[in-house]
């Protein structure tokens, strides 16, 4: 009998070892890909912080030149402000709309497939086409939006030509593109086990309490995902400004990554662009770490084992 605990510990250890080996093996595709394609360029981008690189000739030692440039760069605060504005107003609005739509489209109603497809359409319309149609919708005199506002006696503004309104206009546009978030929510909602709901119904729980106590907790990992990824992605917003506004009017849509892109590819300062990138990396990390830290309080995992 005395030997039994020892052997069971050993067995448990063996199991743990097996699990550890399996864990690394299962994760190996990403590890190999990371080492092969991403790690080198990432390390290189760290070296670039101290280099001057115009992309087309070999980099030169720049010492702290990139850092002193950053300290004196008045456009970085502007770009950061624009980006933070877009992120902290845009992401909550996008997620709220996506979540409500997903709830509405998770009900058994007729034409469900059609509705889902329609709400996903703007996300698959090519960016060029969306850009043109948005210019039409936001037109001061003939635009659909201002025509609509005119019904209520409101004279619509110059959406994309007022520095104060260009960012809200871009946020409004972004709401049309929430298809992916909606689909992720929908996939999460579909994953709520029917048995749990049935059990709750038998226990006499109303629809609201079912929703509040079963649906919401079970999809918190998905809400968490959309929030984390939404903020990471939104901090890197680029295309809308690159295609439609070019950062204007008066730098009001000069987003951080647009400014970074210009430094790297238009101003021949890839070293400085790398510094801007790593600054953004730490800003995003800050918000991401906070979110992971707070996750324990509200995100419910059935089986995430630590």
């Amino acid at each position: 009998m005395a030997a039994a605990p020892v052997s069971s510990t050993r067995r448990r250890k063996r199991f743990a070892n097996r699990e550890a080996v399996a864990g690394w093996l299962f994760a190996s595709p990403w590890l190999i890909g990371f080492v092969a394609f991403t790690m080198g360029p990432m390390i290189y981008s760290i070296l670039l912080l101290f280099l001057k690189w115009d992309l087309i000739t070999p980099p030169e030692w720049g010492g702290l030149a990139n850092f002193t440039r950053l300290v004196g760069d008045r456009r970085v605060p502007i770009a950061l402000y624009n980006t933070a504005y877009y992120t902290f107003i845009g992401v909550p609005v996008q997620l709220a709309v996506a979540f409500l739509l997903a709830l509405a489209l998770n009900v058994q109603i007729r034409g469900l497939a059609l509705y889902r497809t329609i709400y996903y359409l703007p996300s698959i319309t090519p960016a060029v086409a969306s850009a043109v149609i948005w210019l039409q919708i936001l037109h001061t005199d003939y635009g659909t939006l201002n025509e609509f506002l005119r019904n209520f006696g409101i004279a619509g503004p110059n959406w994309l030509y007022e520095p104060a309104l260009a960012k809200p206009a871009l946020i409004m546009m972004s709401v049309w593109g929430i298809g992916p978030q909606m689909i992720i929510f929908l996939a999460g909602l579909q994953g709520v086990p029917a048995v749990l709901k049935e059990a709750a119904t038998i226990d006499g729980a109303g629809e609201w309490s079912q929703f509040r106590h079963i649906t919401i907790p079970i999809i918190t990992p998905i809400i968490f995902f959309n929030l984390v990824v939404g903020i990471i992605g939104s901090f890197q917003v680029f295309t809308a400004a690159y295609i439609m506004t070019g950062g204007g009017p008066e730098n009001s849509t000069l987003f951080y990554v647009l400014y970074l892109w210009r430094n790297g590819f238009e101003y021949f300062r890839m070293g400085y662009a790398a510094l801007l990138a790593w600054v953004l990396f730490f800003i995003i990390s800050f918000f991401t770490v906070i979110q992971f830290g707070l996750a324990g309080r509200w995100v419910y995992y059935e089986a995430l084992r630590s």
Binding site: A16, E19, A20, V21, A22, G23, W24, L25, F26, A27, W30, L31, F34, T38, P41, M42, S45, L48, V228, V229, I232, Q236, V257, L260, W261, G264, F265, M270, A273, A274, A277, W278, L280, F281, I284, S285, T288, A303, L304, R305, S306
Partner: peptide, 28 residues
């Protein structure tokens, strides 16, 4: 692997995975 297997270093590697999303691709 990241969700259901326990292995030493998992949290650090996962942080690295998330980290790759946070560096703007333009510099890579």
């Amino acid at each position: 692997s990241f969700a259901r297997l326990r292995w030493p270093g998992r949290e650090k590697v996962f942080a690295l995975v998330i980290g790759t999303m946070m560096l703007p691709g333009a510099v890579l």
